[in-house]
Design a protein around this nucleic acid. Structure first.
Lengths: 267, 267
DNA sequence: AAAATAGTGTCTCTCAGACAATATGTC
DNA sequence: GACATATTGTCTGAGAGACACTATTTT
């Protein structure tokens, strides 16, 4: 039996009708704040509400390719620019999460550097970077590991279950900074240790000891790679010029940088 | 516009036809070996080949509920028995992973204790516990973090991309033992520290120092909870009787038990 | 000059891992 | 008795975090 015969013989009504979409949690740091890319919905349901960028998976398109496409459409950044990180987050398929029909959404998580343009969407949709702090999500201090279920109705702002997806993405992001060098994806090609520290402080919503952080990141093999150069000027409010680094070739940090927040017992 | 009007107005042909399935990687330890639950396929494609248990998500069924149902159907274990762990693993949606049509599979990962019955499926399908070691998957020693893509054709045994799903599930399992107390889900309600150590040794495919492991697990707050009791007899080949413990209430291990394998640089 | 910041030094405490030792079982 | 194993003790080195200090640069 050839594939064609299979396709012809297969009864499409034999499986429940489901649509599959890809939604992307795109994070960046703007103005010392963690921001997420949102688009305003132009039609019902949730008309006028903010939502994660996303859409139907196209035929012959891999899930990751769909996420890459959505990311590129909204940010103008080809995700192939290797400075962008894109990973699968999780899938969401509660029966009535979309009132129109059964929709299973495969969510992705992206880290992008601060983009000069304020997200010029190619289509007509209004899109914007929105500070996550203003969205009424559970605190960053929420004990990691404890699943933070979003009460329905909480975080009134976002469409569908996107508040939950965003919350899951944020927790994943916080966790990823611990044991991967992906914090470097939030800054430019060359960066100072202080810039990197501010990434950690912003995502973790916690302050870190500058001296210890400095020694720590330099001691992790493969994390930082020295350029011979320093910045042209010192800090805007004083201080010496700092050395510039590039991301090293490590894929995992060992030993990891653990969040200080963890208030000891994590039950 | 009401929800009803939407449902009526919505054109089902406007979205690409996709089926959504749930596949479950069910792991257990039998006879000192890590085993996965497999079912033999009765129809094409991949007729006669082993596959992960799974099936279409039913209407009105949440993804997790579908995974729970598949798990219960194949093992007879109601996943509500809180000793079973079930978590979402990842989704797989390469365009031609199923030759019949576009199928997106949401994979789940389950840890179950050694089940007395050898997996009596409720339906006609043949099912069995299969040691993962015999499946020709990449080594446990494979550097974590480095994505191990399965070459097509490798691991000839499993249907579809299930070899890849299984490999991802195994890596997730190894990682989970590091920072969660989920190793306890592989043993009985009450267990000795040596039993727990054998779980780690089996999943990590590495040997651990008995004395250090002993002190370590007892020092992690919330990991172990003492019953006042000891085993009736010593080990089968000698040795004193050992104390019995129950799982504590910790959700995360802090500090974590790190795999010894990590050959230093993880690039 | 005053203030801010980069980078380094030092000390303490925790913890992982290498042994070693002892007690208690089984064969 | 020979041997295996549970449990505890001890020591060493790595590493995290607190604190202090110096040099450099901006306002």
């Amino acid at each position: 039996m050839t594939e064609e015969e299979f396709l012809a013989a297969y009864d499409p009504s034999a499986f429940p009708p489901v649509a599959v979409t890809v939604d992307v949690v795109v994070l960046t740091i703007r103005d010392e704040q963690l921001n997420v890319l949102l688009v305003r919905r132009g039609e019902a349901p949730y008309e006028g509400r903010w939502a994660l960028p996303g859409g139907f998976v196209r035929p012959d398109e891999d899930l990751a390719a769909g996420a890459q496409r959505e990311l590129a459409e909204e940010t103008g950044v080809g995700a192939r620019l290797r400075r962008v990180h894109l990973e699968q987050l999780a899938s969401y398929g509660a029966p009535r999460r979309d009132p129109r029909m059964r929709v299973v959404s495969v969510a992705y998580l992206a880290f992008v550097p601060d983009l000069p343009e304020p997200a010029a969407g190619t289509d007509a949709r209004e899109s914007a970077w929105v500070p996550v702090a203003g969205l009424g999500l559970p605190d960053a201090a929420g004990a990691p590991g404890r699943p933070v279920r979003q009460r329905p109705g909480a975080t009134r702002g976002l469409a569908f279950d996107h508040a939950q997806i965003l919350a899951d993405g944020l927790e994943r992001a916080r966790s990823k900074l611990e044991y991967t060098p992906l914090a470097t994806r939030f800054v430019g090609e060359e960066f100072t240790i202080a810039e990197l520290r501010r990434v950690y402080e912003t995502v973790w919503d916690d302050s870190l000891h500058a001296g210890n952080f400095h020694r720590k990141v330099l001691s992790v093999p493969g994390f930082m790679e020295s350029t011979g150069v320093t910045t042209d000027r010192g800090g805007s409010r004083g201080g010496p010029r700092s050395r510039l680094y590039r991301a090293g070739d490590a894929r995992l940090l060992h030993p990891a940088l653990l969040r200080p927040s963890r208030e000891d017992s994590i039950r």
